[in-house]
Simulated assay, not measured.
Amino acid sequence: MAEPRRSRWGVGLAVAVLIVAGWAASRGGHGTGSAAPHEPGKSTAPSATSTPSERPTADGQDPARYAPQVIKYAKQADIDPRLLMAILYNESYKPHDPAWERAWQRIKPDAAFGVANMHKAAFDETKQGRDFADRDWRQLPDDPSLAVEAAAWYLHDLARQLPAEHGRYTEDELLALGYNTGPGNMLAFARGAKPGVAAQSYLHQLHTNWTSAAQALRNAG
């Protein structure tokens, strides 16, 4: 006899939790564990996200659907819309279902929320003085527009910290690394520090997603 639907769903969720738990254990919390360490006295401000595994975007959650919001908020925050779009592709490695995200957050309280995978500390810091200052981090899973807006302004804030000389990386590459590992590491990379394996993986995924990001923006235009 076939298993009841509810039972199959429960097994599927348990498997998903185990998979993500294994990923989290191997990748670390904020993505900073594998990057260059913070130098003494440097900022330990939070990164927005964690480092993804190299899995393709899951069916039904292609970030291209958020291209209009990306265009809108990237313009407001004065950042490259392709960078923001590519970051959403980078962050599409896990399910962005509100119920799933909240279930996982009960297991891992410091998990990231929303389609841009933003941690609470990064969201609370970014929203200060902004149009969404009265919004709560817990609303991110239900409001993709808010998630995109917050990510855009986090990138804006990172860009204001960049030095004039970027070393071997472009501005967009450094901002992506900053989004993943935090501003302290971003500045270290700008000065010549070598990213760790996880940060290199994030940058590789960004390059892989450039074409998809550009196509999504063209289609939205």
Rank of each mutant, 00 (worst) to 15 (best):
L174M: 03
P4L: 11
T126N: 09
G129M: 00
S50T: 09
M1I: 13
P63G: 11
L83E: 07
L177D: 11
L187H: 00
A2L: 12
A190Q: 07
A86V: 03
G31V: 03
L187S: 01
V197T: 14
A74C: 11
R6T: 04
A164S: 02
D131I: 07
A190E: 10
K120E: 13
K127D: 00
M118R: 07
Q105P: 02
E125T: 14
Y169T: 02
Y73G: 11
D97C: 13
W153M: 04
F113V: 00
M85G: 01
A48N: 01
W210F: 10
A2V: 12
Q200N: 06
A213D: 14
W153V: 01
V20T: 13
D136P: 03
L162V: 04
A151E: 06
Y66P: 00
L88M: 13
N180C: 04
K127I: 00
L155M: 15
N180P: 08
K94E: 12
A67D: 08
R82W: 10
D62K: 08
V70D: 02
T32V: 15
A25N: 09
D142L: 10
H30L: 10
W137C: 07
D110R: 06
K72D: 05
A151T: 15
A64P: 07
E54Y: 15
Y202Q: 08
L146W: 15
L203E: 11
T170I: 03
E125R: 14
A133E: 09
L18E: 14
W137Q: 04
L146H: 14
P68I: 04
Y66C: 07
I87G: 01
A164L: 10
I79H: 08
W210Y: 14
Q215F: 02
